[in-house]
Simulated assay, not measured.
Amino acid sequence: MMRLRAAVLAFALLGTLPALATEIPSAERRSGASFMSSDTKKMQDDDTANPGMLAVLEGETLWTAKQGDAGKACADCHGDAASSMQGAATRYPAFDSKLQHPVDLESRINLCRRDHQQAPPFPAESHELLALTAYVARQSRGLPITTGDDPALAPYIAKGHDLFVQREGQLNLACANCHDDNWDKHLAGAAITQGQPTGYPIYRLEWQAMGSLARRIRGCMTGVRAQAFDFGSDEMVALELYLMSRAHGMTLETPAVRP
């Protein structure tokens, strides 16, 4: 309870600061891993100790499982994920020409389930959806993020940027107040990172579970006492898109481990 009160007080103090929204120079961008303890870094870097790898292994099983009325597996269309999915996660959220708007990787998986497997979509944050997303994203680990290269995404990235610098909630804070203007400081004893989304889905020690970028965003919004965006909403995907484009060129770490 004392830690919660301290966090609320610290958030409130940040809310009195001007929203400078000073973008981080490319040379100064840092993964959240650089703010972690050495023990947590070792846990992430060792696949035998990284708890997120359990989700990856489950995702591999789902990749080859025939599902839905079509009786198809992901592998029936895409083959070996190690080759067919290499680089795929580095460009999401991506523009869907059929839907005429961007979709995140979780939505792409569910669209494939609906359209090709004739199976019901996995619920947001479900064990299965996180596992399959982690497995797909794992194939791009070590590759540079390319999100935002598609010119069709420009207006959606701009919308996401507007959301990033917009103050919200009872504490009157924007994402930029913490992650652009006060990174490498501390809030209630925890390091403020740059919010670079280089490892999602992540295994978060606080959650003792895997979680998506959308879940992390919703947690921040709840922390400033704002109404959180729905999973898959236009606002959520726009903010995810901006964050990923902001990390353009940084290395994908999925499955990352965070405190």
Rank of each mutant, 00 (worst) to 15 (best):
L143H: 04
L143W: 03
L143P: 06
P144S: 05
P144C: 07
P144W: 07
I145F: 03
I145D: 02
T146N: 07
T146V: 09
T147I: 05
G148E: 02
D150W: 02
D150S: 02
D150Q: 06
P151C: 06
P151S: 08
A152E: 15
A152M: 09
Y156V: 04
A158W: 14
A158G: 14
K159T: 12
K159N: 11
G160R: 00
G160C: 03
H161C: 09
D162S: 15
D162L: 11
F164S: 02
F164M: 07
Q166F: 10
R167G: 00
E168I: 11
G169F: 10
G169R: 01
Q170H: 15
Q170W: 14
Q170P: 06
L171S: 03
L171M: 05
L171E: 02
L171R: 03
L171D: 04
N172F: 02
N172G: 08
N172T: 04
N172S: 09
L173Y: 04
L173K: 00
L173D: 02
L173G: 00
A174N: 01
A174Q: 01
A174D: 05
C175M: 06
A176C: 08
A176S: 14
A176N: 05
A176M: 05
N177Y: 02
N177G: 03
C178F: 01
C178A: 05
H179G: 01
D180L: 08
D180H: 12
D180F: 10
D181G: 04
W183Q: 09
W183R: 09
W183V: 00
W183K: 05
D184C: 09
H186P: 06
H186V: 10
L187P: 12
L187Q: 11
A188P: 00
G189C: 07
A190E: 15
A190G: 12
I192C: 05
I192V: 13
T193E: 08
T193W: 10
G195K: 04
G195P: 00
Q196K: 11
P197A: 12
P197G: 06
T198L: 05
G199H: 01
G199D: 01
Y200C: 02
Y200R: 00
I202C: 10
I202G: 03
R204T: 14
L205R: 15
E206T: 11
E206R: 15
Q208I: 11
Q208S: 15
Q208Y: 15
M210H: 04
M210R: 05
G211C: 12
S212M: 09
L213C: 06
A214F: 03
A214W: 00
A214V: 04
R215D: 14
R215K: 15
R215M: 12
R215V: 05
R215T: 12
R215I: 08
R216N: 12
R216M: 13
I217G: 06
I217V: 12
I217W: 04
G219A: 13
G219S: 12
G219V: 10
G219N: 12
G219H: 14
C220A: 13
C220G: 11
M221L: 15
M221E: 14
T222S: 15
T222V: 15
G223I: 01
G223Y: 05
G223M: 07
V224S: 01
A226I: 08
A228F: 09
A228Y: 03
A228H: 04
F229V: 08
F229S: 09
D230M: 08
D230Q: 12
D230K: 12
D230Y: 05
G232S: 06
G232R: 01
